[in-house]
Design a protein around this nucleic acid. Structure first.
Lengths: 329, 329
DNA sequence: CTGAAAGCGCTTACAG
DNA sequence: CTGAAAGCGCTTACAG
């Protein structure tokens, strides 16, 4: 089947190609009878307009660009799940772009812009804060609608969908303090990623408010590496609670602690911040802040569609409610 | 910054737009001096050709379509990691399409075709076997290069990158039998997904060869659901080994078994087939067939680039080597 | 309500 | 080696 074009449809329906185009884009502007005739032919021929040609002519690609660090992380892929479902609903295609530490941020962004996406969802929480600024600037310069998805940048007024991480970790930490915990550690990553900064901020504030010293332990997201760190750590430190920036880090800690003879949660209470699938597959299951990851993806995509179709947006910052899922840890 | 076009570059460099185009696509055909002059202007203006216009004119979108069931599954997202890295290397953009059970397979595929991708990677292992056939037919009819990625379809000669799942589960099962295990269960999904069929085949064959009856237990991929199934199962059955089609299923089983008072691996040995991150985050860590998921993604994408650029392909079926990672379970 | 025509930003034979 | 021109498959004012 050589792809059928709009000319084929026009010919078969004995109308001009302009009419066929109208049937697809402004059906109300064409006579019901002609419309039916054309629709019938479209169906018979299985015609679907060439998205590229349409994109060039209309200057809209109906494609959104997703910029992220690494697809394979659980939270990222769950965000993507929500994004894709909503994108599909509004008939946008989804293009993926990754940006790792070895790449030049500007190069990647130039490429994204050249791909002519109608809007961008930035979910890269592994950017250093300054790079975030650069990325935001480039997108805004190119006048492409942008929404930050589960990522936060406060230097500029950028549409954002996330949860209030500062408040969440603050409340969580306060809760642990109220239970009598004294040596509460916060396990973060070595790199000072933009998002973890806010998570640490709420934790630190709660500790200080209670007259305790914040104890931030930096390790790798790689299980093989952080296992060694945790083993060493457990030998030399007093700890009765741990908050992990990522669930995988928290679960890895649980395993190390139990193997070292500690009881979880009796000796050390462990809490995650994401509620990914890791949380229900650990033993004991992981108590978590239930970040509504799928929803953050979905809502951010929905917000982006509003910007792309120039709808009025009342509030450009959406902080979704979160809860704490008490499980066994 | 109103986007700079090829006309702007041509104007600034005092050459025709045809020359600018050649500098980008066939640099060897243009005089080195003019070439340098043009390249300088391109750099100064930060020019990047409009991918959509290029796509229309050249009839190549330099975009590949990834068709999958659900991004958020660990194995899928790791495949995607490999795919994206290689796609980037060969300068292809990546568009994502999901297809769940509620959607009409033909509709989704028509959309993929309309998006004008240059090639398709099919990684949907949640398709029933007949639907697989329909998808393959539609793509081949549209004459779009196709590679099956970690998915197998034997009714037609389709380029494929995977591991030999039949052989892998056969060997694995034989190994368990050799260790003296008699009640070896195979935990699969309720739906008869195409890929699991091959995994079950190798298992069943090994059991039959040893004069044992294959014991296939079907459950859900949802931890909350399969936990109930497993609890019930453990009360009523004799079992000394379990093979899980997905790591998450195997890990969930481990947790249920230990909570029910069994020792793993002493009483029940448990093995996974994927070696995802779940395998190192479980306690005991999960012994697995080490399916090289990232590599399968990468190799399949590389194979697809060959088809897209009409390179000769010696072997259109690639079965990557796998190993067994012996861990604690 | 419908058609003829210009144009979206490129690529690519075809001349020269 | 370089430029003028046609064309990729659509959309969208503009006439009628």
């Amino acid at each position: 089947m050589a792809n059928t074009t709009i000319y084929d449809v026009a010919g078969a329906a004995k109308v001009s190609l302009a009419t066929v185009s109208r049937v697809m884009n402004n059906p109300e502007k064409v006579n019901p009878e002609t419309r039916e005739k054309v629709l019938k032919v479209i169906k018979e021929l299985g015609y679907r307009p060439n998205a590229i040609a349409r994109g060039l002519a209309s200057r809209k690609s109906t494609t959104v660009g997703i910029v992220m660090a690494d697809v394979s992380r659980a939270a990222t892929s769950q965000l993507l799940g929500g994004i894709i479902d909503i994108a599909k609903k509004y008939d946008y295609a989804v293009k993926l772009f990754t940006m790792d530490a070895t790449e030049d941020v500007r190069d990647v962004m130039r490429k994204v812009v050249a791909e002519q996406v109608d809007g961008i969802l930035l979910l890269n929480d592994e950017l250093e804060y300054d790079d975030m600024g650069m990325v935001v600037d480039m997108i805004q310069d190119a006048q492409i609608p942008l929404v930050l998805c589960n990522t936060i940048y406060t230097e500029k007024d950028v549409p954002t969908v996330a949860i209030d991480y500062v408040q969440a970790t603050y409340d969580l930490t306060k809760g642990l303090i109220a239970e009598g915990k004294k040596h509460i550690y916060f396990a973060s990553t070595v790199h000072k990623y933009s998002i973890n900064r806010f998570k640490a901020e709420g934790y630190s504030k709660a500790m200080q408010d209670a007259g305790l010293e914040p104890l931030i332990f930096r390790t790798s997201g790689d299980v093989a590496v952080n296992t060694l760190h945790f083993q060493e750590f457990l030998k030399n430190n007093t700890i009765d609670a741990l908050i992990g920036v990522r669930d995988s880090i928290a679960v890895s800690f649980i395993n190390c602690a139990i193997k070292a003879g500690f009881r979880v949660p009796e000796d050390i209470k462990v809490v995650g911040l994401q509620n990914t699938k890791y949380a229900v597959l650990s033993r004991p299951t992981l108590t978590c802040i239930d970040t509504p990851v799928y929803d953050i993806g979905a809502v951010s995509m929905r917000l982006l569609t509003k910007y792309m179709s120039h709808e009025d947006v009342i509030d450009n910052k959406v902080f979704l409610p979160y809860s704490i899922v008490k499980r066994e840890s």
